[in-house]
Amino acid sequence: MSAIRRVEVSGGTTYSIEIGAGLLDDGARLARTVRGRHALIVSDENVAPLYLARLEAALHASRPSLSVAHFVIPPGEHEKTLARFGECLGALAALGATRDASVIALGGGVVGDLAGFAAACWMRGIDCVQVPTTLLAMVDSSVGGKTAVDLPSGKNLVGAFHPPRAVIADTTALRTLPDRELRAGLAEVVKYGAIFDASFLDWLEAHAEALLARDDEALAEAVARSCRYKADVVARDLYEHGDRAMLNFGHTFGHAIETEQGYAGTRGDGLNHGEAVAVGMVLAARLSAALGRASAADVDRLKHLLERLDLPTSIPDGLAPQALLERMRLDKKADAAGLRFILWDKAGAARIVAGVPDDAVLAVLAAG
């Protein structure tokens, strides 16, 4: 087993993110995260055949008496619904889960969000252990405790802040990740450099090919660095009243694209979350430049890096600017002052900007 990287997260609830190869087989490490005698493993039909039996076997090797049940959903963002949430609660009821039970989220962001929300609500809150199997989940959704399900009118509109008890990221799971999903995760990795640290963008430019080739050390380093950036901002702002909102760089545009496409990316005929965020980051950078806050050179640098990682950087055909703007009005990042965006002054230096004029946003959307 390679060296384990550890990132500590504080800010109300303290927990560890452990990153390394082979952690899915480390039964003792996994079992330490489960306090009671019940565990519900939540996964999807893509991930469960690969890793569920392996995870359960590792748990039972260290805790033979642990009562384990499974709740497996079809894959895709369109499954992150109130109906699936209710079914997950039903699985906890069937297990007889008590207040010291654990929900183990084995999968990507959809599984993590759904499982985390169920854990937040069962008996007013039980432990959730995040075991992410996608790069996107490792560097973003599994960390920080934001859990939710979607409504037809918007993404992540019903949810709760519920920090995990632990995050265990086995980087060998990335070997089975489809190329498109790996690239989607790299979009969120780029985001951390864009908003917090231009030197991380330097590192990503130097290691772009290694990351695409799934070099274990490069991926582990990218995950660890990303988690450290996120852990730092979560510690300062657990409930997203201030600095944590900067993690939404590109997401106001990206979520609007996803919602307007009906989350078609999970069916293969639209952008998935990471791809939409990649486009959204370029649009946010262009909006920053249009408002005189950033240089066109920084926009070009970001666009070029994303293109090197084989990510889209323009709005898909068929999406009307006005329709996207209306989606943004219902986004969680809008408030009484109007639309809020995360914009940047330069690469590595982002800020929250409220009251951005509609005409400026529409002009950027119209330019694609």
Score class of each variant (00 low, 15 high):
K230S: 11
V353A: 11
L40E: 12
A334R: 12
L238V: 10
A245Y: 00
I17D: 09
R293Q: 12
A173W: 01
D197I: 07
L40K: 04
K303V: 05
R214Y: 05
D335C: 15
A366H: 15
K80W: 14
D25T: 05
S62M: 04
I195V: 14
L306P: 08
Q322Y: 11
E56C: 07
A31Y: 02
A320Y: 05
A194S: 09
K80H: 14
W122Q: 10
A57Q: 04
V279W: 03
V72W: 03
H273N: 09
A160L: 04
L365K: 00
I73T: 14
L89W: 03
E240I: 05
R124I: 13
D170C: 02
S142Y: 06
A120E: 01
A93V: 08
H60D: 06
R236K: 12
G250Q: 10
G262N: 15
L343C: 00
V111R: 04
A284C: 04
L182P: 05
I104N: 02
A69Y: 05
S142G: 12
P321Q: 11
K303D: 15
A148F: 00
L283S: 00
A48V: 08
L306A: 03
D269V: 11
V111A: 11
M281V: 13
G76Y: 15
A28S: 14
A278C: 10
G250N: 13
T259S: 09
A160C: 03
C227N: 03
L365T: 05
L136S: 09
F196W: 14
S141A: 14
A256G: 05
A367M: 03
A101F: 04
E275V: 04
E188C: 14
A210Q: 07
E18Y: 02
G36V: 09
G254F: 08
M328F: 00
L291A: 03
V234N: 01
L24H: 07
I17T: 10
A264P: 15
P321Y: 11
H304K: 12
G11D: 10
R35C: 01
A220C: 09
A224N: 03
I104A: 07
S314E: 15
A31G: 14
A320E: 14
E87S: 08
A290L: 12
F71E: 15
S43H: 03
A218D: 09
F249P: 00
G20N: 09
V189S: 11
P316D: 10
V149R: 06
A93R: 08
L82W: 02
Q130L: 12
P152V: 06
G108W: 00
G76M: 08
R225C: 08
A256L: 10
L291Y: 04
Y192T: 01
Y51L: 08
D113V: 00
R165H: 13
G12L: 13
F341A: 12
A278L: 09
D358R: 04
A39N: 10
R267P: 03
L219V: 11
L219W: 02
